[in-house]
Write a protein that binds this DNA or RNA. Sequence first.
RNA 1: CGGGGCGUAGUGUAACGGUUAACAUUCCUGUUUUGGGAACAGGCGACUCAGGGUUCGAAUCCCUGCGCCCCGACCA
Length: 419
Amino acid sequence: MRQSHLFTKTRREAPSDEVSKNSQLLIRAGFIQKMGAGVYSFLPLGLRVLNKIEQIIREEMNAIGGQELQLAALQEKSLWEKTNRWDDAVVDNWFKTTLKNGNEMGLGFTHEEPLTNLMRDHIRSFRDLPIYTYQFQTKFRNETRAKSGILRGREFLMKDLYSFSRDEKEHEAFYEKSKIAYANVFKRAGIADRTFITFASGGSFSKYSHEYQMLTDAGEDIIYYNKEKNVAVNKEVYTDEVLAEMGLKKSDMTEGKAVEVGNIFSLGTKFSEPLELSFKDETGKNIPVIMGSYGIGIPRLMGAIVETMPTDKEIVWPKNVSPFAVHIIAMKIEGPVMEAAEKLYKELTEKNVEVLLDDRDLRAGEKFGDADLIGIPLRIILGEKSLAAGKYEFKDRITNKEELFDKDELMAYIEKHNV
RNA sequence: CGGGGCGUAGUGUAACGGUUAACAUUCCUGUUUUGGGAACAGGCGACUCAGGGUUCGAAUCCCUGCGCCCCGACCA
């Protein structure tokens, strides 16, 4: 992609009503635009990051047997009445709307009900199970208070997987697999070192649920974590009893603020019973399906990554989620420098490396400033002097190492680090 | 939903109740520049969130509405 054609614009200052680090940086870098409180649009750069994260999750969900589908966003009232989740007194964050014919519908804030209902058409026999389905879909939540930029929106993309199992044992086996998949997601997204699987309250069908909490002051949750054992306990269930059960000692736990970037939840028969989702076992007996739900908020994860930046001046994306793999900055937009830049751009692109080529007729400072803000981790600067010596100025912004590579070294490094 | 704060060019700020609403930046033109947001000159851009009211006179004071931010509550 040539930067001269990229639909984006950086700005020097963030709007005064943006306070959170993630929204300030992302707006200044031209990744997102604000529609209203808790409602953001994604521009090309932002969408690329979103898509990167989405693809990582997709691969990990597929790896544990997940099958992607997409449910409707509009929700039918009667379905939700069966589980007693239509009433505003029970669920206060509905967006509801009225059809021309007077019927009420809601915009889905989650999808247990419609998917459970859908499964009734497909699950008859024990032979039809287990099933693991997921989707990437926009959720609507009428938050009383949207806050923290894209960490808590009223409309946001979410990956939600739902598992349908024959019994507890089968459910548990998948639940454990999902933990591995989630660990992989956060590792690939570059936040594994500060993200903890966290025990949280479980609801009526399991003692605990598991949250994935990433340490950041921008978070809303308080957790107690143990870095060595790589686990944490949410404050809401942080008792001597729970700690003892988990073999943890209070003295080994550190308190921290964190944001919930994902969760997994055993649902038991909470939805299958009221919605009458059951199957016939080998003896012909009707058995309610055991369910689980597994969520990750995509923009929230994106925002959480930005919150980990050490300053509010620039972004450095983890390699796997960066909008582009390599940023080539041409110091001249004509002559041998530009020719070399075009050639390198072409060669890398042919090797399926995603390259952003800054071919804009701007001064160096401006180009560097934009590049710092946009956050592509690998940077190649093509300048007259170094190029005359056959060298490419290379910087890995993650390790903060700068090198003078010749062409072969450069290509080898990028090939090795391309994702 | 309770409490607090705030709405002025695209953005960030200024303007005692008193000219034509100012400055910076962005943007446009030109000249000179060209390795960390360059210099100079010129120019575009705001019925000051909306609607009422007070006043000779309102961006400024009052009321209502809408919007935004923060703290708290809430977070299936």
